[in-house]
Design a protein around this nucleic acid. Structure first.
Length: 591
DNA sequence: ACGAGCTGTCATTGA
DNA sequence: CTTCAATGACAGCTC
């Protein structure tokens, strides 16, 4: 995040101001601008102070990191954090397993060495030394909290090969034996505490909980980290880039942070260059990771976001190819990556065609005339600011051709909420469109060097969002853009939800209509049946009536005429033979 | 060229 | 008063 501030030269600031002034559509109220403008001087002063403080802190960390890392460089000759053999002075953060070899080297650990020598044959020692990532009991890890994170951070990928079950068991046994020795425990604890003070933990004020968090986080996550680089990431474009920054994580702020941090850890493997431009990065592997981690954990979540966002702006990071860090990370709720379909070259070109003076109206023009500003934008981001890099996240870890990506991705991941599944539409199209849309805000964010991920801007709760805003020194144009991005992003999601609901309502109503139709048919059918039954009953009754009537005889033994008499039943159940004429009278009487 | 469908955005409204 | 969600309306894009 510091790097962000650094590149902001007065020239940049002027550009940004100009940009903002031109950005009429951004909607930043003039009054807002004026008001802020009045406070501009104060802000600038604050900004300068903050930058100074940050620089100092960075330098301190840098120095410490270098001190701790020098050894590593000498031995390995490369930045890749290898659970290298014995000599790992910076292994402070190393896991307890890794501490073993270290303990042997530290002079103050003579006793430990002796104990080790006694406990394990030379071969075993070598083994232990060569297998740093051996599994360690949880209890141990608690004892050696601080050291843990870094080890895994160092290089999960490299360490993975050592994690075979057998070596694990051996190591576990060895460790249990080792730890059962009080002296060794003391030594390790000593080392551990001393290591905690290492550069990465320069921020001594950091509560132990943070370290615990680190620890848990590392212990829990490694498997994923190991998988990510090689296998397609289930999270969609998470693993899209071998690169580290899975900015495009699903809408889960907290978990996202975790994953990001992890990926960050893994990232240094691929980003040796990164160390140069950034103070933190300049530090050797482990310390760098620690520093970033501590930053992330200690500061607001935005720190990380800032970090990831910065990538695109720091020329070297961009070079890393799969930078996709901030990438759309899915501004929208649907974390589904949007890969521009082959046919969307137009839209994709938009990414390249942003000019520094982008505003809404400009973006509109860009949409229609993508290529117009391309050259200009290329100047602004000469390194390699290509849309392709944005598309990368869409892909899985494996570098698939764009064309394949688009089709595959679209098939695998439905755009937007589940409700859309019901609505038939071309996903490629929608996705590419969405990406293009995303690119607009993203482009603006890039141009204005917004120091955090768009998804954060959109998804953070108001409180967190305000806190984030207050933590960063942002000019008027940046603030207005951020607000617009937040508004648009939320509204977009709201629109998606609204349409989803609408579709669900339609579907629900259709279902209800169907069920009602079915019920109607059923009732009609039942009615017909009842009608039929009633008719049968009437027939039966009629036949019974005639049968009974035919059995009646008068005084002369003659049958009564049905036309002259009829049978009537009273309410009490008694039956009378009533003459037809009287029957009418009876009815009248009843009435 | 036209229309349908999808999506993003804006403006408005109500909580 | 601010924030936010919901929604209608509109525009742009693709097919």
């Amino acid at each position: 995040m510091m790097e962000l501030e650094l590149p902001k030269t007065q020239q940049d600031m002027d550009l940004i101001d100009i940009l903002w002034r031109q950005d009429i559509d951004l909607g930043a109220g003039r009054e807002v601008f004026d008001y802020i403008h009045r406070q501009k001087e104060c802000e600038l002063e604050k900004q300068k102070k903050l930058e100074e403080e940050r620089q100092e802190q960075v330098q301190q960390e840098k120095e410490k990191a270098w001190l701790s890392q020098l050894h590593l460089d000498e031995e390995t000759g490369e930045f890749v954090p290898r659970p290298a053999p014995p000599s790992k002075p910076e292994s402070p953060p190393l896991s307890s397993e890794q501490n073993v070899p270290n303990a042997e080297e530290v002079l103050s650990f003579d006793m430990c060495m002796q104990l080790l020598a006694e406990t394990f044959p030379l071969v075993d020692e070598v083994q232990v030394a060569s297998q740093p990532p051996a599994p360690e009991p949880t209890e141990d890890s608690q004892v050696l909290l601080a050291p843990l994170p870094p080890p895994q951070t160092q290089d999960p990928v490299l360490m993975s090969p050592f994690l075979d079950s057998k070596s694990e068991q051996d190591m576990e046994q060895a460790w249990q034996e080792l730890l059962s020795i009080p002296e060794l425990q003391d030594c390790l604890n000593m080392q551990n505490t001393s290591l905690i003070d290492m550069p990465s933990y320069a921020n001594s004020s950091k509560p132990q909980e943070v370290q615990d968090a680190n620890y848990n986080f590392y212990v829990a996550e490694p498997p994923d980290v190991l998988k990510r680089p090689n296998t397609g990431c289930p999270a969609g474009f998470l693993g899209a880039y071998d690169g580290p920054y899975p900015a495009g994580l699903p809408p889960e702020p907290v978990s996202q942070m975790t994953v990001n941090a992890l990926d960050l850890n893994g990232s240094f493997l691929f980003y040796p260059d990164l160390m140069n431009p950034k103070p933190n990065n300049s530090e050797p592997l482990v310390p760098e990771v620690d520093a970033s981690l501590t930053e992330i954990l200690s500061d607001s979540p935005m720190d990380f976001a800032t970090f990831s966002m910065e990538e695109p702006f720091t020329g070297k990071t961009v070079q890393e190819g799969p930078d996709i860090p901030d990438s759309d990370s899915g501004v929208s709720m649907d974390s589904s990556p949007k890969a521009p379909s082959p046919g969307n070259s137009l839209e994709s070109s938009l990414y390249k065609s942003a000019s520094f003076t982008i505003n809404d109206s400009d973006m509109e023009e860009l949409d229609s005339n993508p290529g117009s500003v391309q050259a200009e934008y290329a100047e602004m981001f000469p390194v390699s600011y290509h849309i392709d890099e944005y598309q990368v996240p869409v892909t899985t870890s494996q570098s698939t051709p764009l064309s394949t990506l688009t089709s595959d991705e679209t098939d695998s991941e439905p755009p937007g909420s589940p409700g859309y599944l019901k609505t038939p539409f071309t996903k490629d199209k929608s996705r590419s469109r969405l990406e293009a849309r995303l690119s607009r805000d993203e482009q603006r964010a890039k141009v204005l060097q917004i120091p955090f991920a768009i998804e954060k801007i959109i998804n953070l709760p108001v409180e967190d969002f305000n806190e984030l805003m207050s933590k960063h020194q942002l000019n008027e144009s940046q603030l207005s853009l951020i607000r617009d991005i937040r508004r648009r992003g939320k509204n977009k999601v709201a629109a998606q939800n609204c349409r989803k609901r609408k579709m669900e309502n339609i579907v629900g109503l259709e279902c209800e209509l169907d069920s009602l139709k079915n019920e109607k048919e059923k009732l009609l059918k039942e009615k017909g049946e009842q009608h039929q039954n009633l008719r049968q009953l009437k027939q039966q009754l009629n036949s019974l009536y005639l049968e009974v009537f035919s059995m009646l005889r008068d005084e002369d033994g003659k049958p009564y005429s049905p036309s002259e008499y009829s049978l009537q039943q009273t309410s009490d159940g008694s039956v009378f033979l009533v003459p037809r004429s009287k029957k009418a009278e009876l009815k009248k009487e009843k009435k």
